[in-house]
């Protein structure tokens, strides 16, 4: 083989992997940009790199140094927690009913869960704004924190149902029969066998739900009134120049999430590997 042939063989063997790594780099490029510009000693707007005085750590030393930024982050986290908790509970119940029970209108129930996922966010946002403004204000509900929470529970719900449903459907029904056969009544069968086995699905549904809620902008923008979440803060401040603190916080969230995922995977794989 000539060197050229060797090279061609080497590339053709790895071409898929090379493309894959290129796509991953493409996915990370903006994150790297966000990271780099968190050290920018920008003057008016953090769009162009200012070589004078950059890189600087001043934004990292004072991440809350811009008015409203940490408040909006706090709002996002609180909304995320409440919405995740509620959507996970409601969605898990729905998933159990849809998978485990035969009842009239099961098809309609599945449809009702599916259609919100097939509806663009802007339509969800628009419809929620309409009913909040024209209907709910009559009972004293103002646009703000709670309308965001209500809306987020709604759009996270379908994703929870789908995730938990998938887990439930992949569960071997013979496991529950085995439990019943081994003297467990309905209640202990559920708590000793069904629930522990579905739990990983519920956990990933909750994580999915939190990240959807945390990163949502379009629906939030419609129903938030004067309340600001972190994505909304960034979007609104874009018009007058995003502070580098947004980059600091955005990149930190990324690091925290990656660390959590890595720790979770390590614990998960350790649990799976032989203990003795």
């Amino acid at each position: 083989m000539t060197t050229g042939q060797k090279l061609r063989f080497w590339i053709s063997e790895r071409i898929v992997m090379i493309i894959a790594v290129a796509v991953l780099l493409y996915l990370f490029l903006p994150v790297a940009y966000t990271f780099a510009f968190s050290f920018n000693n920008y003057r008016k707007s953090n769009i162009a790199w200012n070589p004078e005085g950059s890189p600087t750590l001043k934004h990292w030393q004072d991440p809350c140094g811009v008015e409203g930024i940490c408040e909006s982050l706090g709002t996002s986290i609180r909304v995320g927690f409440i919405a995740t908790l509620a959507a996970t509970i409601l969605g898990t119940m729905l998933a159990f009913a849809l998978v485990r029970h035969k009842f009239k209108g099961r098809g309609a129930g599945n449809m009702l869960v599916f259609i919100p996922m097939a509806t663009p966010e802007i339509v969800l946002g628009a419809s929620l704004l309409t009913i909040f403004v024209q209907g709910f204000t009559r009972i004293g509900l103002k646009l703000g924190f709670w309308t965001i929470v209500l809306a987020h529970i709604m759009f996270c719900l379908s994703f929870v149902v789908v995730t938990v449903k998938a887990r439930l459907q992949s569960l071997d029904p013979r496991l529950e029969e085995a439990a019943e056969d081994l003297y467990a009544d309905a209640r202990s069968t559920f708590w000793r066998v069904t629930f522990p086995l579905v739990l990983p699905g519920i956990v990933s549904a909750a994580l999915l739900s939190f990240s959807l809620s945390f990163d949502d902008f379009i629906i939030t923008n419609f129903v938030s009134g004067n309340e600001s979440t972190f994505p909304k803060f960034v979007y609104v401040s874009y018009l007058r120049g995003i502070p580098a603190q947004a980059n600091v916080i955005g990149f930190s969230m990324f690091v925290i999430a990656v660390l959590l995922v890595v720790v979770g995977q390590v614990i998960g794989s350790r649990r799976r590997s032989p203990s003795s």
Binding site: D172, E177, L182, Y183
Partner: peptide
């Protein structure tokens, strides 16, 4: 009900509880 009977089953494909150790599986009943 199955849990009221003095009858136990060895299931096809075993239906062992994947989240429990072998000992806990056996101690379940």
């Amino acid at each position: 009900r199955p849990y009221e009977r003095p009858v136990n089953t060895v299931f096809q494909s075993y239906a062992l509880f994947p989240h429990l150790t072998v000992r806990d599986n056996v101690a379940f009943g």
